[in-house]
Computed example of a mutant assay.
Amino acid sequence: MKTSHTFGGDWTEQKLERLQKYLKAYTTIFTKNKRAQKLIPIYVDAFAGTGYRTKPLQLTESLSLFEEFTEPEVENFLKGSAWLALEVKPSFQKYIFIEQNTAHVKELQKLQTIFSGKQDNIQIIQSDANNWLQDWCRDTDWKTHRAVVFLDPYGMQVEWKLIEALAKTKAIDLWLLFPIGVAVNRLLTKGGKPPLVWEQTLTRVFGTEDWRDNFYSEKTETTLFGDNDVTVKEADFAKIGEFFVNRLKTVFSEVAENPLPLRNSQNTILYLLCFAAGNPTGAKTAVRIAQHILKP
């Protein structure tokens, strides 16, 4: 029986359209620039799914409690990021698709038949993306390789240590879907600081505990029974997004200042589509292109 990979909505179309535009610009540079022609360009899809999609993602039980995050279902076949990347011309010299789900991996393998001319250039990895990519960053010869990495998690799977590893190569352009609405803002509770396990998750994603001072403040409230010290949430979507962009700036050469808010049909922000460039030589050009693509 065919395995369905369900996710998306109009915001998914926006995300994929912008990614594909950048990939076309990226491979064109590697075709026309004589110095770049000596390098091997790689496309990496770290949460590749099946390579296609048939209807929107059914949110986790905890998130489905929030009606503003639900989307109407769509049954028609739609191409996913892995498929669209394989269609890009000029082509990458290598494609790496990473996925943990066994059924999804089997569907991904069909892309090697569909794109038979690129079969030898496609590598499909069944693994945890955080761990596998960190090893890959360490073991690849970055004097001869360059890459675009697309991190498109369902939630908060991307750990900061992976982002650091990607940046450390000085050779990777990163497209990242940051789960600002579907996850991060939900963990930043209004009534006092989050539970310990949520705090640990936020620290793992941001790579620092500084989010506490940036997103919360201590205030004194006067009541009939005296003064009480309370913890107040100061963070809104703008402040959370700015904080994450600034975190990216601590490790990448250049970062796009205008991450794109991706909204569902009820105008609720789900994700921020972010871009960062690692190679100091080409970073300014890469970010200029990305910032133009990211315009609403």
Rank of each mutant, 00 (worst) to 15 (best):
M1T: 05
T3K: 03
H5C: 03
F7T: 10
D10R: 03
K21F: 03
T27V: 02
T28M: 14
T28D: 14
I29G: 04
F30Y: 15
A36R: 07
K38C: 06
P41Q: 02
Y43L: 07
D45T: 11
D45E: 15
A46R: 00
T50Q: 06
R53S: 12
P56L: 10
L57E: 06
Q58S: 12
T60L: 00
E61G: 08
F66G: 04
E67H: 04
L78P: 02
L78C: 06
K79I: 08
G80E: 08
E87M: 14
V88D: 00
V88Q: 01
K89P: 07
P90A: 04
S91H: 12
Q93L: 08
Y95H: 02
I96P: 09
N101D: 12
T102V: 15
Q109M: 11
Q109S: 04
Q109V: 09
K110T: 15
Q112D: 12
K118Q: 13
K118T: 00
D120T: 14
I124G: 09
Q126M: 01
S127V: 00
L133Y: 00
Q134K: 06
W136R: 08
T144V: 11
R146A: 13
A147V: 02
A147C: 04
V149Y: 01
F150Q: 02
L151N: 05
P153S: 13
Y154S: 04
Y154M: 05
Q157D: 07
V158T: 09
E159W: 10
E159N: 10
A171W: 01
I172E: 05
I172V: 12
D173A: 00
L176D: 05
L176Q: 00
V182I: 08
N185R: 05
L188S: 13
T189A: 01
G192T: 09
L196R: 08
V197D: 15
E199H: 13
E199D: 12
E199K: 11
Q200K: 14
T201V: 11
R204A: 09
V205E: 00
G207F: 06
D213M: 14
N214C: 09
Y216N: 11
S217K: 12
S217P: 02
S217N: 02
K219N: 15
T222N: 13
T223A: 07
F225V: 07
G226A: 14
D227V: 04
T231H: 12
K233Q: 14
E234R: 11
A235T: 12
A235F: 09
K239V: 03
I240S: 13
T250C: 09
S253P: 06
S253H: 11
N258V: 06
N258T: 10
P259Y: 06
L262M: 05
R263T: 14
N267A: 09
Y271A: 07
L272Q: 03
F275K: 04
F275S: 08
A276S: 03
A276L: 08
G278T: 15
P280V: 05
G282V: 04
A283E: 13
K284R: 03
T285W: 11
K295L: 01
P296G: 05
